[in-house]
Amino acid sequence: MEKPFIKLEDVSFSYESGEEGPVKMLLPPILKRINLEIARGSFVAILGHNGSGKSTLAKLLNLILFPTEGKIYLDGKDITDENMTEDDVYVVRRKIGMVFQNPDNQLVATVVEEDVAFGPENLGVEPAEIRRRVDRALETVGMSEFKKHSPHQLSGGQKQRVAIAGIIAMLPECIVFDESTAMLDPKGRKEVMDTIVRLNREKGITVLHITHNMEEAFRADRVIVISDGEISLDGTPREVFSNVGKLRTVGLDVPQVTELLYELKSMGYDEVDYTETDEEKCAEMLAEIIKSQKGR
């Protein structure tokens, strides 16, 4: 069998308490013995309410945080090994790029194209090659015409696309989006989501999208729900969203149509299939049911 691209083995994480002492004091764990495998090229949405540990998980993947227990493998290589050198760490960070929540706090330069060049420059890429990568990355996110602009002239969605371009220019194999759409307006959200989907489908980049927006999670091939530091649901969007009751108990919403159909089903209308996720098909189904009542 092919090696999983990313593999977490019994990973736990807790912050150390600030107090000095002979024994390291740990705060209550944020992640509890997580076991997870992520396939190359997949699009995984990670859902959870604030404080569920979903962002911590992201930071572990590119070694911004280090697991308290357990191992993380990237392409079969143990990246939590003690013998990892600084250079090894940077290899991991190049392979797994990160896009954060606040678009303002991740752009470094005063000109868009200079910012996109920042990553490749740090990697020591040849100048002519950086130029090519920057142009290509900006084209991929549809921001070429803004390359000479200053970040503060851009909208939130545009800034976030520039941040994405900055990561693509490092030629990553996987990008983790840590609530990258949370601060955007609906238009910005759509721009960024479309970009993310395209990166996954066309460039084959593995995507981990951390969010609490259900409609966004629908666009993934796999949804993982994290609650209190544990994986509580894992499956296709359809499988996960059929657990309406469980989603509610972990503090997540389901789409309105799913909620409606779920309520109907629990009222005894057994023909209702609330796991259907396509709006049109749902309407078709419900219209049929309403009409067929006549025939009974």
Partner: peptide, 27 residues
């Protein structure tokens, strides 16, 4: 301070480590 912290993390994620081995796009 919050911004500075977030920016520092973002820069680290983009493999920044001072000018060690760093090249420049514009020559």
């Amino acid at each position: 301070f919050r911004r500075a912290g977030e920016l520092a993390t973002a820069m680290e994620c983009r493999c920044y480590r001072g000018d060690k081995g760093r090249t420049r796009m514009t020559q």
